[in-house]
Design a protein around this nucleic acid. Structure first.
Lengths: 231, 231
DNA sequence: TGCAAAAGTTGAGAAAACGCAAACTTGGTT
DNA sequence: AACCAAGTTTGCGTTTTCTCAACTTTTGCA
């Protein structure tokens, strides 16, 4: 395989503090995977033999409950570590990671985790910052599910997608990958019918616009207002 | 202050691998706090100046949403580390920790965290195992909130309390601290009225028994069945 | 180009859970 | 011993959201 160019790691938080030589070192230990849209990077329950960095593309992390219902945990934007079960001492992946667009992923054997933590300044800090942010988001999610109505949760979910995966265009901000009503319902603990009704109304109100599976936020301010309860 | 006896740390997972001398060392760096029932150990938003080990008693971790509604995140059983925001690079506590019974807590200044991780074998591993378990529980909680009905969630919440904080007696297993209908509703994203109706029914069916604020599980098997959807 | 599969819409009725209200119980405190 | 605060129960009407169903639109592929 051709040697990877160290500049691949430029501007990536986990390797921010490394010099060119160290970046080359890290890359020499990595393998690149190209994952086509719709294919999984790893599956729930699999042994966590590797940890991953998403170079390009967008990844959906999802779990199935015992009844086979899907729940979407989060979406990973390019540049982030993911599938780092090892950081928390897990040896199996708790969820499935699905490429929602074509993805480029760097993978390292789990055995290197401790080496990276030890050898590369800033790697551990960034890794635990990522975990910390995810934990914080999970807490927010629990609060929302416990106290808010579907409408508020759907508004929040779309805002989050916009913020993390949005592409600004002339009309508003489009989410960078296809999102169906079903997907939004799996993100919010709702049903595709309820989500469809909400989006139809918001489309009439010019808050969002959607064709096929592309969603574009036209009025983020009003969407934000919808996340607050009306009381 | 009288010197603490190193045997206090016996059988506590984070310091399992330490010898007597090291345990004394760890204790000499600690401060003991006695927290009366109903008082907080730390509050949401406070700077995380210390990290904690619960020696004795039971702690409730809770957050308020912007509307002032309370959501209970989890309950800490004796022997566990808690308030370890620092493990994930946070410098403020994301939640309030409330003593639900009188508590004995060992506290260390946050500045010692890195020292402990470095110096004491097994400490980091145990700390991240605790975090890993909590993350896993949070994931389960999200799944439940997203896909299950109130009845199933309440059954699961009571089972969890029983497993982590239960005291076996002749009739069944009692939860070691007072639990009101309101508390259960805040654990499950429900209302005290709905919880009351459920518990009344389960009491008639001899699945649980409750007087004042003590709850006793009489038939864990049937309670477990109630956590599965009927479909 | 046409067709099947996937995605989306919308109505109508049902179910789950909530909010409100009123009354009751219990236990600690003065 | 009496009272008060906190906790609990239960009925009733309402709201939210789901389920079921039918139909339309879109798109990817043969």
């Amino acid at each position: 395989m051709a040697k990877l160019d160290a500049s691949l790691l430029n501007n990536l938080a986990p390797f921010d503090q490394l010099d060119a030589r160290q970046r080359q070192e890290v890359l020499d230990l990595a393998r690149v995977r190209r994952i086509p849209a719709g294919k999984s990077v790893f599956e729930e329950g699999m042994e966590a033999t590797h940890f991953n960095l998403l170079l390009d593309g967008h990844v959906r992390v999802e779990r199935l409950n015992p009844e086979g219902e899907k729940v979407i945990s989060l979406h990973i934007p390019p540049g982030q570590l993911f599938g780092i079960a090892r950081a928390l001492g897990r040896d199996h992946f708790p969820a499935t990671a699905l490429a929602v667009t074509e993805c480029l992923v760097l993978v390292w054997p789990t055995a290197l985790w401790d080496t990276f933590v030890e050898r590369y300044d800033g790697f551990a800090a960034e890794a635990y910052k990522v975990v910390g942010n995810r934990v914080s988001e999970m807490n927010n999610r629990i609060m929302e599910l416990a106290t808010q109505h579907v409408e508020q949760r759907v508004a929040r979910a779309i805002l989050r997608l916009m913020q993390e995966h949005g592409l600004a265009n002339d009309a508003g901000t489009q989410i960078a990958f296809p999102v169906t009503r079903k997907v939004i319902s799996e993100m919010t603990g709702s049903t595709l019918h309820t989500v469809s009704r909400l989006l139809s109304r918001w489309e009439r109100q010019k808050i969002v616009q959607s064709q096929h599976r592309r969603i574009c936020v036209l009025d983020a301010v009003r969407l934000e207002q919808l996340t607050h309860s009306v009381h």
